[in-house]
């Protein structure tokens, strides 16, 4: 299980916390200049890339899906990722272009990708799959058609309750329907976000932070529900600090200038509850937020079986710190 070790790079989710009462916002906000580029190399980079690649190798059908007609968009994605990575981290990534002959170098991993831009026969993987394996994010490419967005390419290793295999070809509204364990009445909200996505323009991505709690597992997809569903019951107030993780999903919505598609990028980060002691103000804020979660939301987020234990753990932790 990964955890963020540099807390300056961890996106603490409860920033709209006021008066010790939980407030939830789904708004997609504009990004400050330094956040427009989603690239982020953390101390966990190598271990995350290793795990992501293992999953793609072991379960290609589960982790990567595309339609054959998406190649042009895939190359646009390759160019975008290379540009963003070099822009933010010129010391880690570089590219040499000799006409259509491109050589991309990942200096952290000491790897080189050489290919003819626009010619997928020059690669052993699909272009999107190849370049996506150099970055720890999940990437979903949604094509804009008839005022909706349809998932046409997806590379996913960390997203919760999402499956490239199941969600391929679905509209934005269809993808946001399936939440297991409880029937979800989120139609209005989903439609509001869909309409907002229509207004996103190239060069001005939007962002949103989603959060959840995970019980001893970061990989919670439909394919393994039979395993992690019951595991949520093993959390106690004693072991919650190690087992339960605050799971933060920082999302970027980027309009692709040529294809007009929306690229949906996820940066999923995990922090075990016990590590909240490293930032006492986070510990207190998290405690008050979790203690105030309405039941329906705990159900819908799938945390109902272990939320009370987690709150109790945090309360005990705060009390023990006060005693010291």
């Amino acid at each position: 299980m990964f955890k963020s070790t540099n807390l300056d790079l961890f996106t603490f989710p409860f920033t709209n916390f006021k008066n010790k009462t939980y407030r939830y916002s789904n708004d997609l906000v504009a990004l400050s200049e330094d956040k427009v580029n989603f690239m982020k190399i953390t101390p966990e980079y190598k271990v995350q890339i290793k795990r992501k690649r293992e999953m793609l190798e072991e379960q290609p059908e589960v982790r990567y899906q595309s339609f054959p007609h998406t190649m042009e968009m895939q190359w646009e994605f390759v160019e975008l990722l290379i540009d963003l990575s070099i822009n933010k981290y010129p010391e880690h990534f570089s590219v040499e272009k000799d006409g259509d002959q491109w050589t991309f170098t990942n200096h952290i991993l000491g790897e080189t990708e050489t290919f003819i831009f626009g010619d997928e026969s020059s690669l052993s993987l699909e272009p999107y799959d190849m370049i996506g394996r150099h970055f720890h994010n999940d990437f979903m490419l949604m094509v804009n058609r008839d005022d909706n967005f349809y998932l046409e390419v997806a590379q996913e290793s960390f997203a919760a309750l999402f499956s490239p295999n199941w969600n391929l070809g679905m509209s934005f509204n269809e993808i946001h329907g399936p939440v297991p364990f409880v029937s979800r009445d989120g139609v209005e909200l989903t439609d509001r976000i869909r309409k907002f996505l229509l207004t996103i323009e190239p060069g001005a991505p939007r962002t949103r932070v989603n959060w959840n709690l995970m019980a001893d597992r970061w990989d919670v997809n439909y394919e393994t529900m039979d395993i992690w569903g019951p595991e949520r019951d093993k959390v106690t107030a004693e072991n919650a600090g190690k087992l339960v993780h605050l799971r933060v999903e920082e999302q970027w919505f980027i309009r692709m200038p040529r294809s007009n598609a929306i690229l949906f990028v996820l940066d999923t980060q995990f922090l075990p509850l016990e590590d909240l002691v490293l930032r006492p103000e986070w510990l207190e804020t998290t405690y008050f937020n979790l203690a105030d979660i309405p039941d329906y939301m705990a159900e819908y987020k799938g945390m109902a079986p272990f939320l009370p234990q987690s709150v109790e753990y945090l309360e005990n932790l705060m009390n023990s710190m006060k005693v010291k």
Partner: peptide, 15 residues
């Protein structure tokens, strides 16, 4: 409760 036009079936949640 969800149907995929691509997979032509309802989702089967394993348990």
């Amino acid at each position: 409760p969800f149907f995929s036009k691509v997979r032509k079936g309802y989702i089967g949640y394993p348990f």
